[in-house]
């Protein structure tokens, strides 16, 4: 299993759990990272203070890969500006691209996301675009130079699980980049199911932030993601559908 790596933009990761950081107490961040064995944590650039009170960066261990996101961007141009700012500050080339111009459901704007991906990939960013799972859009994102595809399972914060399961499966089947499920995963079983389907990694934030014990839930997610990954790699057995066969053989007439 040690050879099973998640590869993003040439970087290798052992953990397939990307932790969101925006919705829980900062003092719990490091405990969560530890329990989740996460190697990547997202960070809204708009939330990153340079110094001062309540600075999230003070709580993230140095060996963790920061995945800055472009939250706050309402179009491609703004996303590009935020990404560049992130790199200038020193957060490297990883960028989780979020382009949202809908304050109610926070649904991503696929069209603007493609535009921003193209620009940022050309500028040398490792672009991880958050998107609504549409095969044509995913193909365009591949062409635009994305490092992975991050379809939503359900609206952000909804904890509804794999509402878009069939469409994510299509992306897993058809797209050669890692598919990372982002947004909407509400409990470990759903994360496990996504991993069984063959997605490369799962990202969660609200599900953990709204749990009774944040750190323990982070650990539960870790286990579920590992279980799902193992199941996928081992090859899921055939599931027999009961009651579907006719009582006499349909092929009995053949001579």
């Amino acid at each position: 299993m040690n050879s099973d790596k998640l590869i993003l933009g040439g970087y290798e990761f052992t953990s397939r759990f990307i932790l969101g950081s925006g919705k829980f107490s900062l003092e719990l961040v490091s405990a969560c990272i530890e329990k989740a064995r996460a190697e990547i944590i997202t960070l809204a650039l708009r939330r990153a203070n340079e110094g001062g009170l309540a600075n999230i960066l003070d709580y993230i261990p140095k060996n963790i890969t920061l995945l800055p996101n472009t939250s706050g961007a309402r179009n491609a141009e703004e996303a590009v500006r935020i990404a560049k700012l992130s790199r200038e500050i020193g957060y490297g080339n990883f960028i989780k691209l979020e382009v949202i111009r809908d304050s109610k459901y926070l649904l991503p704007d696929n069209y603007e996301t493609i535009k921003a991906t193209e620009i940022l990939a050309k500028e040398g960013f490792i672009v991880m675009p958050y998107m609504y799972p549409d095969l044509n859009v995913a193909r365009s994102l591949v062409d635009a130079g994305a490092a992975c595809i991050m379809p939503l399972a359900a609206p952000i914060g909804s904890n509804k699980g794999l509402s878009t399961k069939d469409f994510i499966q299509i992306l897993v089947d058809e797209i050669d980049l890692p598919i990372i499920v982002d947004a909407g995963i509400g409990k470990p079983s759903q994360a496990c199911e996504a991993m069984e389907m063959g997605v490369a990694a799962v990202m969660a934030n609200t599900a953990i932030a709204t749990a009774g014990n944040v750190a323990v839930m982070a650990e539960a997610f870790k286990k579920a993601i590992e279980a799902g990954r193992s199941a996928y790699l081992s090859g899921i057995g055939r599931i027999i559908n009961k009651g579907a066969s006719a009582s006499s053989p349909l092929t009995g007439f053949l001579q």
Binding site: S25, A44, R46, N49, L53, G72, I82
Partner: peptide, 20 residues
């Protein structure tokens, strides 16, 4: 106010915004 929020298990946030 900052420390009362912390005491009540809330996370004070000084900024979650970027001017673009």
């Amino acid at each position: 106010v900052y420390h009362t929020l912390l005491k009540n298990h809330l996370q004070p946030v000084m900024s979650d915004y970027i001017y673009v």
